[in-house]
């Protein structure tokens, strides 16, 4: 493949991935508002466009057109850099996530992934870890007490749950024998999903809990607990800077949802049939459906559960999830070691 073609394909893929991800973030916000509204016996947005479908557009426009306030008491360089850091890292993670096998257009065989790295999983874990900096710096640079408390909570929470999250994946890695997400999905082909085939349901549970905590969602939404800390680490942010944190949170939700699909739910594995074009589309469809299912669980839980307290959250992470993840690793490796 000539270099120019290679670059062209990469650029097109990046553009598509960005567009799809950002649109998906916007529409997940709408879907969340709609679904939660129906769970709570109300309508949700209905005014902008039919059924409120243009609401995300209006919201986006509002964020762009709003005055960009920078309070006088903040430390400006970091205050401005923090949301950018959050958003950039959240978006970068999507680069290594595959959504299907590959398509052949003309003479080029294009894998459905921006870049296939053989340590993709490590990259994602690394990126989400660095993502804490965005929040920590936002809280520190805001020079406000609520922001500070929010960012302290966020940092502590994300660091603690990162451990459980990482450890929950090891069982899968032992089974697949690779860090490449594509390899891991291929190892689950033919309904041999990690969730049951290698008995990783405990790991899935740990992953699910840790993922909720990683993305600061109910019942682990302490860093932005509105009723306690006003808005947590983004109390002092407005307009586009606030929107960046917002999009970053939803992009992170997508990342963990994709990861859960790839690692536990067989990725794009599912029944494939019909003509050639359908054979290409169906796996992507299965993948998207699984991600949507995961996101729905997120929204559902938000409509149901109260919030943990800070110390309870820590105890849950360190005293329950971490030992559980360790036990899972031990048992998985024992089983694999004995049967291999």
């Amino acid at each position: 493949m000539p270099l120019s073609q290679y670059i062209l394909i990469a650029v097109v893929k990046i553009a598509i991935a960005l567009f799809v991800l950002l649109t998906a973030c916007a529409y997940v916000v709408l879907a969340e508002r709609k679904l939660i509204a129906r769970m709570q016996n109300r309508w949700g947005p209905t005014r902008v466009g039919p059924f409120g479908f243009l609401q995300p557009l209006a919201d986006g426009l509002k964020f762009i057109l709003k005055e960009d306030l920078i309070p006088s008491h903040v430390y400006k360089p970091l205050y401005i850099a923090a949301p950018m850091l959050s958003l950039t890292l959240a978006l970068t993670a999507i680069a290594v996530i595959p959504i299907g096998q590959s398509v052949t257009i003309g003479n080029a065989n294009i894998p459905l992934q921006i870049t296939d790295v053989n340590i993709a999983l490590l990259i994602i874990l690394g990126l989400t870890s660095v993502g804490v900096y965005g929040i920590a710096l936002a809280g520190w640079a805001s020079n406000s007490k609520y922001s500070l408390l929010g960012s302290l909570r966020a940092s502590a929470q994300m660091i603690s749950y990162e451990l459980a999250l990482g450890l929950s994946l090891i069982g899968v890695l032992i089974g697949a024998g690779s860090f490449s997400l594509r390899e891991i999905v291929n190892s689950q082909a033919g309904w041999h999903w990690n969730l049951w085939y290698r008995g990783q349901f405990v790991a899935f549970f740990v992953y699910l809990m840790a993922a909720f905590a990683e993305t600061n969602r109910v019942p682990f939404d302490l860093p932005e607990a509105e009723t306690e800390l006003v808005a947590g680490y983004h109390t002092e942010y407005s307009a586009m800077k606030f929107a960046m944190f917002f999009v970053a949170e939803y992009a992170n939700m997508f990342t963990v949802a994709c990861l859960a699909t790839l690692l536990f739910l067989g990725g794009w594995d599912g029944p494939v049939f019909g003509p050639a074009w359908l054979m290409v589309v169906l796996p992507v469809l299965w993948f998207v459906l699984k991600v949507i299912l995961f996101i729905f669980v997120y929204i559902w839980i938000r409509g149901t559960l109260p919030r943990f307290r800070y110390d309870q959250l820590m105890a849950f992470g360190w005293k329950f999830l971490l030992p559980l993840a360790l036990a899972n690793i031990l048992i998985t490796s024992l089983v694999i070691g004995l049967t291999a």
Partner: peptide
């Protein structure tokens, strides 16, 4: 009270 503790839906049921 439920809203303060983070359970959002109860609030709307009560107001119904």
């Amino acid at each position: 009270h439920a809203l303060d503790i983070g359970a959002m839906s109860v609030f709307l049921y009560c107001f119904r």
